[in-house]
Design a binder for these strands. Structure first.
Lengths: 218, 218
DNA sequence: CCGTGGCGTGACCGCTTGGTCATATCGCGC
DNA sequence: GCGCGATATGACCAAGCGGTCACGCCACGG
Protein backbone atom coordinates (compact mmCIF):
# COMPACT_ATOMS: atom_id res chain seq x y z
CA UNK A 1 0.00 0.00 0.00
CA UNK A 2 1.19 3.51 -0.82
CA UNK A 3 2.13 5.56 2.24
CA UNK A 4 0.22 8.76 3.05
CA UNK A 5 3.12 10.81 1.71
CA UNK A 6 2.48 9.44 -1.75
CA UNK A 7 -1.16 10.46 -1.64
CA UNK A 8 -0.23 13.99 -0.51
CA UNK A 9 2.06 14.48 -3.50
CA UNK A 10 1.42 17.35 -5.91
CA UNK A 11 -0.49 15.79 -8.82
CA UNK A 12 2.10 16.48 -11.50
CA UNK A 13 4.95 15.11 -9.43
CA UNK A 14 2.95 12.01 -8.65
CA UNK A 15 2.14 11.57 -12.31
CA UNK A 16 5.78 11.93 -13.29
CA UNK A 17 6.74 9.27 -10.81
CA UNK A 18 3.96 6.85 -11.74
CA UNK A 19 4.77 7.36 -15.41
CA UNK A 20 8.41 6.55 -14.89
CA UNK A 21 7.59 3.49 -12.79
CA UNK A 22 5.04 2.29 -15.32
CA UNK A 23 7.61 2.58 -18.07
CA UNK A 24 10.19 0.65 -16.12
CA UNK A 25 7.89 -2.23 -15.21
CA UNK A 26 6.53 -2.32 -18.75
CA UNK A 27 10.01 -2.65 -20.19
CA UNK A 28 11.32 -5.14 -17.60
CA UNK A 29 9.86 -7.86 -15.42
CA UNK A 30 9.84 -7.46 -11.66
CA UNK A 31 13.33 -8.68 -10.97
CA UNK A 32 14.92 -6.82 -13.88
CA UNK A 33 13.15 -3.54 -13.14
CA UNK A 34 15.44 -1.05 -11.46
CA UNK A 35 14.47 1.48 -8.82
CA UNK A 36 17.52 3.50 -9.82
CA UNK A 37 16.31 3.92 -13.39
CA UNK A 38 12.86 4.95 -12.17
CA UNK A 39 14.18 7.75 -10.00
CA UNK A 40 16.50 8.93 -12.78
CA UNK A 41 13.61 9.09 -15.23
CA UNK A 42 11.31 10.78 -12.73
CA UNK A 43 13.98 13.21 -11.61
CA UNK A 44 13.62 12.51 -7.90
CA UNK A 45 15.92 11.13 -5.23
CA UNK A 46 16.11 7.45 -4.54
CA UNK A 47 15.16 7.90 -0.91
CA UNK A 48 11.84 9.43 -1.93
CA UNK A 49 10.61 6.12 -3.29
CA UNK A 50 10.83 4.71 0.21
CA UNK A 51 8.81 7.63 1.54
CA UNK A 52 6.04 6.70 -0.92
CA UNK A 53 6.13 2.90 -0.75
CA UNK A 54 7.47 0.19 1.54
CA UNK A 55 9.79 -1.01 -1.20
CA UNK A 56 10.05 -2.24 -4.76
CA UNK A 57 7.49 -5.00 -4.23
CA UNK A 58 4.97 -2.62 -2.72
CA UNK A 59 5.34 -0.29 -5.69
CA UNK A 60 4.97 -3.19 -8.11
CA UNK A 61 1.81 -4.38 -6.40
CA UNK A 62 0.34 -0.90 -6.60
CA UNK A 63 1.06 -0.62 -10.32
CA UNK A 64 -0.29 -4.06 -11.18
CA UNK A 65 -3.49 -3.33 -9.27
CA UNK A 66 -3.76 0.02 -11.00
CA UNK A 67 -3.30 -1.52 -14.43
CA UNK A 68 -5.71 -4.38 -13.77
CA UNK A 69 -8.41 -2.10 -12.43
CA UNK A 70 -8.00 0.29 -15.33
CA UNK A 71 -8.29 -2.51 -17.85
CA UNK A 72 -11.27 -4.18 -16.19
CA UNK A 73 -13.03 -0.83 -15.93
CA UNK A 74 -12.36 -0.19 -19.60
CA UNK A 75 -13.78 -3.55 -20.61
CA UNK A 76 -16.80 -3.21 -18.36
CA UNK A 77 -17.55 0.36 -19.46
CA UNK A 78 -17.47 -0.64 -23.10
CA UNK A 79 -19.82 -3.54 -22.40
CA UNK A 80 -22.84 -2.24 -24.19
CA UNK A 81 -25.85 -3.70 -22.44
CA UNK A 82 -26.52 -5.88 -25.44
CA UNK A 83 -24.43 -8.97 -26.31
CA UNK A 84 -27.08 -11.33 -25.07
CA UNK A 85 -25.38 -14.66 -25.67
CA UNK A 86 -22.18 -16.12 -24.29
CA UNK A 87 -20.06 -15.95 -27.42
CA UNK A 88 -20.97 -12.34 -28.14
CA UNK A 89 -19.88 -11.53 -24.62
CA UNK A 90 -16.58 -13.31 -25.03
CA UNK A 91 -16.05 -11.61 -28.34
CA UNK A 92 -16.80 -8.23 -26.86
CA UNK A 93 -14.52 -8.75 -23.89
CA UNK A 94 -11.68 -9.93 -26.11
CA UNK A 95 -12.23 -7.07 -28.51
CA UNK A 96 -12.16 -4.38 -25.86
CA UNK A 97 -9.31 -6.07 -24.09
CA UNK A 98 -7.24 -6.02 -27.28
CA UNK A 99 -8.19 -2.44 -27.99
CA UNK A 100 -7.08 -1.49 -24.52
CA UNK A 101 -3.79 -3.32 -24.90
CA UNK A 102 -2.89 -1.65 -28.17
CA UNK A 103 -3.88 1.83 -27.05
CA UNK A 104 -2.24 1.53 -23.63
CA UNK A 105 0.90 -0.47 -24.33
CA UNK A 106 2.47 0.40 -20.98
CA UNK A 107 -0.40 -1.03 -18.97
CA UNK A 108 -0.57 -3.99 -21.32
CA UNK A 109 3.11 -4.84 -21.06
CA UNK A 110 3.05 -4.49 -17.31
CA UNK A 111 0.14 -6.90 -17.08
CA UNK A 112 1.84 -9.23 -19.53
CA UNK A 113 4.92 -9.38 -17.35
CA UNK A 114 2.80 -9.87 -14.25
CA UNK A 115 0.96 -12.73 -15.94
CA UNK A 116 4.07 -14.66 -16.96
CA UNK A 117 6.26 -13.66 -14.03
CA UNK A 118 8.38 -16.61 -12.92
CA UNK A 119 6.77 -17.53 -9.62
CA UNK A 120 9.28 -16.48 -7.01
CA UNK A 121 7.96 -16.33 -3.45
CA UNK A 122 8.00 -12.54 -3.70
CA UNK A 123 5.87 -12.05 -6.78
CA UNK A 124 3.68 -15.14 -6.45
CA UNK A 125 0.92 -13.40 -4.57
CA UNK A 126 0.70 -10.55 -7.09
CA UNK A 127 0.49 -12.74 -10.17
CA UNK A 128 -1.90 -15.18 -8.48
CA UNK A 129 -4.30 -12.38 -7.63
CA UNK A 130 -4.18 -11.16 -11.21
CA UNK A 131 -4.85 -14.59 -12.66
CA UNK A 132 -7.59 -15.25 -10.12
CA UNK A 133 -9.36 -12.03 -11.10
CA UNK A 134 -9.33 -12.96 -14.80
CA UNK A 135 -10.50 -16.47 -14.06
CA UNK A 136 -13.31 -15.21 -11.86
CA UNK A 137 -14.47 -12.88 -14.61
CA UNK A 138 -14.56 -15.67 -17.17
CA UNK A 139 -16.05 -18.08 -14.68
CA UNK A 140 -18.98 -15.70 -14.27
CA UNK A 141 -19.50 -15.59 -18.01
CA UNK A 142 -19.28 -19.38 -18.30
CA UNK A 143 -21.73 -20.03 -15.47
CA UNK A 144 -24.23 -17.62 -16.95
CA UNK A 145 -23.69 -19.17 -20.37
CA UNK A 146 -24.33 -22.65 -18.98
CA UNK A 147 -27.44 -21.48 -17.18
CA UNK A 148 -28.69 -19.80 -20.34
CA UNK A 149 -28.04 -22.93 -22.37
CA UNK A 150 -25.44 -21.33 -24.61
CA UNK A 151 -22.87 -23.96 -23.67
CA UNK A 152 -22.91 -27.73 -23.70
CA UNK A 153 -23.86 -28.77 -20.16
CA UNK A 154 -21.37 -31.65 -20.19
CA UNK A 155 -18.40 -29.28 -20.38
CA UNK A 156 -15.81 -29.35 -17.62
CA UNK A 157 -16.15 -25.84 -16.22
CA UNK A 158 -12.51 -25.51 -15.17
CA UNK A 159 -11.34 -26.69 -18.55
CA UNK A 160 -13.65 -24.29 -20.35
CA UNK A 161 -12.46 -21.33 -18.31
CA UNK A 162 -8.89 -22.39 -18.90
CA UNK A 163 -9.30 -22.68 -22.67
CA UNK A 164 -10.93 -19.26 -22.89
CA UNK A 165 -8.36 -17.66 -20.62
CA UNK A 166 -5.42 -18.95 -22.61
CA UNK A 167 -6.84 -17.85 -25.92
CA UNK A 168 -7.76 -14.38 -24.73
CA UNK A 169 -4.50 -13.74 -22.93
CA UNK A 170 -2.44 -15.06 -25.81
CA UNK A 171 -4.48 -13.17 -28.39
CA UNK A 172 -1.97 -10.40 -27.76
CA UNK A 173 0.84 -12.55 -29.13
CA UNK A 174 -1.12 -13.50 -32.21
CA UNK A 175 -2.05 -9.92 -33.03
CA UNK A 176 1.52 -8.85 -32.38
CA UNK A 177 2.74 -11.37 -34.95
CA UNK A 178 0.05 -10.70 -37.48
CA UNK A 179 0.32 -6.92 -37.43
CA UNK A 180 4.06 -6.72 -36.85
CA UNK A 181 3.42 -4.70 -33.74
CA UNK A 182 6.09 -4.31 -31.10
CA UNK A 183 5.03 -3.51 -27.57
CA UNK A 184 8.59 -2.71 -26.64
CA UNK A 185 8.74 -0.06 -29.36
CA UNK A 186 5.33 1.28 -28.45
CA UNK A 187 6.34 1.70 -24.82
CA UNK A 188 9.52 3.44 -25.84
CA UNK A 189 7.61 5.69 -28.21
CA UNK A 190 5.17 6.40 -25.40
CA UNK A 191 2.06 5.83 -27.47
CA UNK A 192 0.04 2.91 -28.75
CA UNK A 193 -1.20 2.23 -32.21
CA UNK A 194 -4.95 2.11 -32.64
CA UNK A 195 -5.82 -1.25 -34.10
CA UNK A 196 -7.80 -1.32 -37.33
CA UNK A 197 -11.37 -2.36 -36.63
CA UNK A 198 -11.83 -4.61 -39.64
CA UNK A 199 -8.59 -6.46 -39.06
CA UNK A 200 -9.30 -7.05 -35.39
CA UNK A 201 -12.84 -8.03 -36.27
CA UNK A 202 -11.69 -10.63 -38.77
CA UNK A 203 -9.32 -12.20 -36.26
CA UNK A 204 -11.98 -12.28 -33.58
CA UNK A 205 -14.53 -13.78 -35.94
CA UNK A 206 -12.15 -16.58 -36.70
CA UNK A 207 -11.18 -17.20 -33.08
CA UNK A 208 -14.66 -16.95 -31.60
CA UNK A 209 -15.94 -19.07 -34.45
CA UNK A 210 -13.59 -21.86 -33.45
CA UNK A 211 -14.51 -21.51 -29.79
CA UNK A 212 -18.22 -21.41 -30.59
CA UNK A 213 -18.17 -24.62 -32.56
CA UNK A 214 -16.03 -26.19 -29.85
CA UNK A 215 -18.16 -25.19 -26.90
CA UNK A 216 -21.71 -24.41 -27.95
CA UNK A 217 -24.74 -26.54 -27.46
CA UNK A 218 -26.16 -28.44 -30.37
CA UNK B 1 28.32 -23.54 -28.91
CA UNK B 2 30.26 -25.55 -26.36
CA UNK B 3 34.02 -25.26 -26.70
CA UNK B 4 36.09 -28.36 -27.51
CA UNK B 5 37.19 -28.51 -23.89
CA UNK B 6 33.62 -29.25 -22.86
CA UNK B 7 33.38 -32.15 -25.26
CA UNK B 8 36.66 -33.60 -23.99
CA UNK B 9 35.39 -33.68 -20.41
CA UNK B 10 35.26 -36.99 -18.53
CA UNK B 11 31.65 -38.15 -18.82
CA UNK B 12 30.82 -38.07 -15.13
CA UNK B 13 32.24 -34.59 -14.66
CA UNK B 14 30.33 -33.36 -17.66
CA UNK B 15 27.16 -34.90 -16.32
CA UNK B 16 27.63 -33.31 -12.91
CA UNK B 17 28.04 -29.93 -14.54
CA UNK B 18 25.11 -30.30 -16.92
CA UNK B 19 22.96 -31.54 -14.06
CA UNK B 20 23.80 -28.55 -11.92
CA UNK B 21 23.21 -26.13 -14.79
CA UNK B 22 19.92 -27.80 -15.66
CA UNK B 23 18.76 -27.45 -12.08
CA UNK B 24 19.68 -23.80 -11.93
CA UNK B 25 17.93 -22.86 -15.17
CA UNK B 26 14.91 -24.95 -14.21
CA UNK B 27 14.58 -23.11 -10.91
CA UNK B 28 15.27 -19.61 -12.27
CA UNK B 29 14.78 -17.80 -15.55
CA UNK B 30 17.77 -16.69 -17.56
CA UNK B 31 18.46 -13.46 -15.77
CA UNK B 32 17.92 -14.86 -12.29
CA UNK B 33 20.03 -17.96 -12.88
CA UNK B 34 23.44 -17.68 -11.25
CA UNK B 35 26.69 -19.06 -12.60
CA UNK B 36 28.04 -19.00 -9.06
CA UNK B 37 25.36 -21.35 -7.79
CA UNK B 38 25.97 -23.71 -10.70
CA UNK B 39 29.68 -24.07 -9.98
CA UNK B 40 28.99 -24.51 -6.28
CA UNK B 41 26.53 -27.30 -6.97
CA UNK B 42 28.79 -28.95 -9.53
CA UNK B 43 31.84 -28.61 -7.32
CA UNK B 44 34.02 -26.95 -9.93
CA UNK B 45 35.72 -23.58 -10.21
CA UNK B 46 33.98 -20.61 -11.75
CA UNK B 47 36.68 -20.15 -14.36
CA UNK B 48 36.00 -23.61 -15.73
CA UNK B 49 32.60 -22.57 -17.02
CA UNK B 50 34.34 -20.14 -19.34
CA UNK B 51 36.60 -22.91 -20.60
CA UNK B 52 33.48 -24.86 -21.59
CA UNK B 53 31.25 -22.08 -22.93
CA UNK B 54 31.59 -18.53 -24.16
CA UNK B 55 29.45 -17.30 -21.29
CA UNK B 56 26.14 -17.62 -19.52
CA UNK B 57 24.12 -17.07 -22.68
CA UNK B 58 26.04 -19.72 -24.59
CA UNK B 59 25.44 -22.22 -21.81
CA UNK B 60 21.75 -21.32 -21.71
CA UNK B 61 21.39 -21.78 -25.46
CA UNK B 62 23.06 -25.19 -25.22
CA UNK B 63 20.70 -26.33 -22.47
CA UNK B 64 17.55 -25.09 -24.19
CA UNK B 65 18.56 -26.85 -27.40
CA UNK B 66 19.33 -30.01 -25.44
CA UNK B 67 15.96 -29.92 -23.68
CA UNK B 68 14.03 -29.18 -26.86
CA UNK B 69 15.74 -31.93 -28.82
CA UNK B 70 15.20 -34.41 -26.00
CA UNK B 71 11.52 -33.58 -25.77
CA UNK B 72 10.91 -33.65 -29.52
CA UNK B 73 12.72 -36.96 -29.79
CA UNK B 74 10.61 -38.36 -26.97
CA UNK B 75 7.39 -37.28 -28.63
CA UNK B 76 8.45 -38.53 -32.04
CA UNK B 77 9.68 -41.87 -30.70
CA UNK B 78 6.40 -42.49 -28.93
CA UNK B 79 4.48 -41.69 -32.09
CA UNK B 80 3.20 -45.10 -32.83
CA UNK B 81 2.77 -45.33 -36.59
CA UNK B 82 -0.99 -45.34 -36.12
CA UNK B 83 -2.98 -42.23 -35.18
CA UNK B 84 -4.22 -41.74 -38.71
CA UNK B 85 -6.28 -38.59 -38.31
CA UNK B 86 -5.33 -35.10 -37.23
CA UNK B 87 -6.98 -35.06 -33.84
CA UNK B 88 -5.52 -38.39 -32.81
CA UNK B 89 -2.12 -37.00 -33.73
CA UNK B 90 -2.66 -33.86 -31.68
CA UNK B 91 -3.91 -35.91 -28.79
CA UNK B 92 -0.91 -38.19 -28.97
CA UNK B 93 1.57 -35.33 -29.16
CA UNK B 94 -0.06 -33.56 -26.22
CA UNK B 95 -0.20 -36.78 -24.23
CA UNK B 96 3.45 -37.63 -24.73
CA UNK B 97 4.45 -34.04 -24.23
CA UNK B 98 2.68 -33.96 -20.88
CA UNK B 99 4.14 -37.31 -19.88
CA UNK B 100 7.59 -36.00 -20.72
CA UNK B 101 7.04 -32.84 -18.70
CA UNK B 102 5.91 -34.66 -15.59
CA UNK B 103 8.64 -37.28 -15.73
CA UNK B 104 11.41 -34.80 -16.58
CA UNK B 105 10.48 -31.73 -14.56
CA UNK B 106 13.89 -30.14 -15.00
CA UNK B 107 13.71 -30.17 -18.77
CA UNK B 108 10.09 -29.08 -18.61
CA UNK B 109 10.73 -26.13 -16.31
CA UNK B 110 13.69 -25.02 -18.37
CA UNK B 111 11.57 -25.04 -21.52
CA UNK B 112 8.77 -23.28 -19.68
CA UNK B 113 11.10 -20.48 -18.69
CA UNK B 114 12.51 -20.29 -22.20
CA UNK B 115 8.98 -20.05 -23.62
CA UNK B 116 7.86 -17.19 -21.39
CA UNK B 117 11.21 -15.46 -21.06
CA UNK B 118 10.75 -11.69 -21.19
CA UNK B 119 12.20 -10.85 -24.59
CA UNK B 120 15.41 -9.04 -23.84
CA UNK B 121 17.78 -8.65 -26.78
CA UNK B 122 19.96 -11.35 -25.25
CA UNK B 123 17.42 -14.13 -24.93
CA UNK B 124 15.17 -13.20 -27.82
CA UNK B 125 16.91 -15.41 -30.33
CA UNK B 126 16.78 -18.45 -28.05
CA UNK B 127 13.09 -18.21 -27.26
CA UNK B 128 12.19 -17.35 -30.85
CA UNK B 129 13.94 -20.46 -32.13
CA UNK B 130 12.10 -22.57 -29.57
CA UNK B 131 8.72 -21.15 -30.49
CA UNK B 132 9.48 -21.45 -34.18
CA UNK B 133 10.31 -25.15 -33.78
CA UNK B 134 7.02 -25.86 -32.01
CA UNK B 135 5.05 -23.87 -34.55
CA UNK B 136 6.75 -25.67 -37.43
CA UNK B 137 5.87 -29.02 -35.88
CA UNK B 138 2.21 -28.09 -35.51
CA UNK B 139 2.15 -26.42 -38.90
CA UNK B 140 3.19 -29.73 -40.44
CA UNK B 141 0.34 -31.52 -38.66
CA UNK B 142 -2.18 -28.86 -39.70
CA UNK B 143 -1.13 -28.89 -43.33
CA UNK B 144 -1.38 -32.66 -43.48
CA UNK B 145 -4.73 -32.50 -41.71
CA UNK B 146 -6.04 -29.96 -44.20
CA UNK B 147 -4.80 -32.05 -47.12
CA UNK B 148 -6.43 -35.14 -45.63
CA UNK B 149 -9.69 -33.31 -45.11
CA UNK B 150 -9.66 -33.61 -41.33
CA UNK B 151 -9.92 -29.86 -40.93
CA UNK B 152 -12.28 -27.27 -42.30
CA UNK B 153 -10.58 -25.83 -45.39
CA UNK B 154 -11.73 -22.29 -44.59
CA UNK B 155 -9.60 -22.18 -41.42
CA UNK B 156 -6.93 -19.53 -41.10
CA UNK B 157 -3.81 -21.66 -40.87
CA UNK B 158 -1.86 -19.25 -38.67
CA UNK B 159 -4.78 -18.94 -36.31
CA UNK B 160 -5.23 -22.69 -36.12
CA UNK B 161 -1.58 -23.29 -35.33
CA UNK B 162 -1.73 -20.55 -32.74
CA UNK B 163 -4.81 -21.98 -31.01
CA UNK B 164 -3.27 -25.44 -30.85
CA UNK B 165 0.07 -24.13 -29.66
CA UNK B 166 -1.42 -22.13 -26.82
CA UNK B 167 -3.56 -24.98 -25.59
CA UNK B 168 -0.76 -27.53 -25.69
CA UNK B 169 1.82 -25.29 -24.07
CA UNK B 170 -0.58 -24.15 -21.39
CA UNK B 171 -1.84 -27.67 -20.74
CA UNK B 172 1.02 -27.81 -18.25
CA UNK B 173 -0.58 -25.07 -16.17
CA UNK B 174 -3.97 -26.74 -16.22
CA UNK B 175 -2.59 -30.11 -15.15
CA UNK B 176 -0.51 -28.42 -12.49
CA UNK B 177 -3.63 -26.84 -11.04
CA UNK B 178 -5.79 -29.90 -11.35
CA UNK B 179 -3.35 -32.36 -9.82
CA UNK B 180 -1.82 -29.98 -7.31
CA UNK B 181 1.56 -30.65 -8.84
CA UNK B 182 4.49 -28.33 -8.21
CA UNK B 183 7.30 -28.26 -10.73
CA UNK B 184 9.42 -26.30 -8.30
CA UNK B 185 9.12 -29.04 -5.71
CA UNK B 186 9.71 -31.75 -8.29
CA UNK B 187 12.91 -30.08 -9.47
CA UNK B 188 14.10 -29.73 -5.91
CA UNK B 189 13.25 -33.33 -5.19
CA UNK B 190 15.10 -34.30 -8.34
CA UNK B 191 12.41 -36.59 -9.67
CA UNK B 192 9.11 -36.24 -11.45
CA UNK B 193 5.79 -37.78 -10.64
CA UNK B 194 4.39 -40.16 -13.23
CA UNK B 195 1.00 -38.91 -14.22
CA UNK B 196 -1.95 -41.26 -13.87
CA UNK B 197 -3.03 -42.48 -17.30
CA UNK B 198 -6.76 -42.30 -16.72
CA UNK B 199 -6.64 -38.80 -15.33
CA UNK B 200 -4.49 -37.47 -18.14
CA UNK B 201 -6.67 -39.31 -20.61
CA UNK B 202 -9.83 -37.69 -19.27
CA UNK B 203 -8.34 -34.21 -19.50
CA UNK B 204 -7.10 -34.82 -23.04
CA UNK B 205 -10.46 -36.22 -24.12
CA UNK B 206 -12.13 -33.07 -22.92
CA UNK B 207 -9.58 -30.73 -24.48
CA UNK B 208 -9.23 -32.52 -27.81
CA UNK B 209 -13.00 -32.87 -27.91
CA UNK B 210 -13.38 -29.12 -27.75
CA UNK B 211 -10.70 -28.61 -30.39
CA UNK B 212 -12.21 -31.27 -32.62
CA UNK B 213 -15.66 -29.69 -32.63
CA UNK B 214 -14.06 -26.31 -33.18
CA UNK B 215 -11.82 -27.27 -36.07
CA UNK B 216 -13.03 -30.39 -37.80
CA UNK B 217 -14.79 -30.61 -41.09
CA UNK B 218 -18.51 -31.25 -41.20
C1' DC C 1 10.96 34.32 15.64
C1' DC C 2 11.35 29.97 17.12
C1' DG C 3 10.15 25.01 17.13
C1' DT C 4 8.50 21.06 15.09
C1' DG C 5 7.11 17.66 11.92
C1' DG C 6 6.85 16.33 7.06
C1' DC C 7 9.52 15.69 3.26
C1' DG C 8 13.59 15.65 -0.09
C1' DT C 9 18.12 14.12 -0.73
C1' DG C 10 22.19 11.44 -2.30
C1' DA C 11 26.27 9.43 -0.32
C1' DC C 12 26.71 5.22 1.39
C1' DC C 13 26.22 0.10 2.70
C1' DG C 14 26.32 -4.80 2.00
C1' DC C 15 25.62 -7.97 -1.32
C1' DT C 16 25.41 -10.39 -5.73
C1' DT C 17 26.35 -10.58 -10.38
C1' DG C 18 29.06 -12.17 -14.91
C1' DG C 19 33.43 -12.35 -16.26
C1' DT C 20 38.87 -12.29 -16.09
C1' DC C 21 43.49 -13.84 -15.52
C1' DA C 22 47.86 -15.03 -13.42
C1' DT C 23 49.18 -19.07 -11.63
C1' DA C 24 49.25 -23.96 -10.68
C1' DT C 25 48.50 -28.56 -12.04
C1' DC C 26 47.95 -32.25 -15.06
C1' DG C 27 48.97 -35.75 -18.63
C1' DC C 28 50.92 -37.17 -22.66
C1' DG C 29 54.84 -37.75 -26.24
C1' DC C 30 59.58 -38.11 -26.29
C1' DG D 1 62.02 -37.12 -16.24
C1' DC D 2 61.63 -33.34 -19.25
C1' DG D 3 58.79 -30.11 -21.77
C1' DC D 4 54.70 -28.31 -23.36
C1' DG D 5 50.05 -27.53 -24.43
C1' DA D 6 45.59 -28.21 -22.28
C1' DT D 7 42.99 -27.52 -18.38
C1' DA D 8 41.73 -26.21 -13.44
C1' DT D 9 41.47 -22.68 -10.15
C1' DG D 10 39.69 -18.95 -7.11
C1' DA D 11 41.02 -14.32 -5.80
C1' DC D 12 39.70 -10.41 -7.93
C1' DC D 13 37.16 -6.71 -10.60
C1' DA D 14 33.74 -3.32 -11.94
C1' DA D 15 29.03 -2.75 -12.11
C1' DG D 16 24.58 -3.00 -10.54
C1' DC D 17 21.25 -3.89 -7.13
C1' DG D 18 17.64 -2.61 -3.09
C1' DG D 19 17.61 -0.23 0.77
C1' DT D 20 19.18 3.19 4.66
C1' DC D 21 19.91 7.32 7.12
C1' DA D 22 21.87 11.62 8.80
C1' DC D 23 21.15 15.97 7.35
C1' DG D 24 18.86 20.06 5.49
C1' DC D 25 15.02 22.46 3.84
C1' DC D 26 10.56 24.46 4.20
C1' DA D 27 5.97 25.60 5.93
C1' DC D 28 3.12 26.13 9.44
C1' DG D 29 1.28 27.09 14.49
C1' DG D 30 2.19 29.38 18.58
Amino acid sequence: MPKPTFLNLPPDKRRRFVDAALNEFALHDYRAASVGRIVDAAGIAKGSVYQYFDGKLDLYRYLVDLAAETKFRFIDAARAGDAPDFFSQVRQAASHGARFDFSQPRYASLLYHATYEPSTPETLEVSSRLRAASHAYLRGLVDAGLARGDLRPDLDRDMTVYVLYQQIVALRDFLTDRFGFSFQDAVHAGAGLPIRDEELGAVLDELVGILRRGLELG
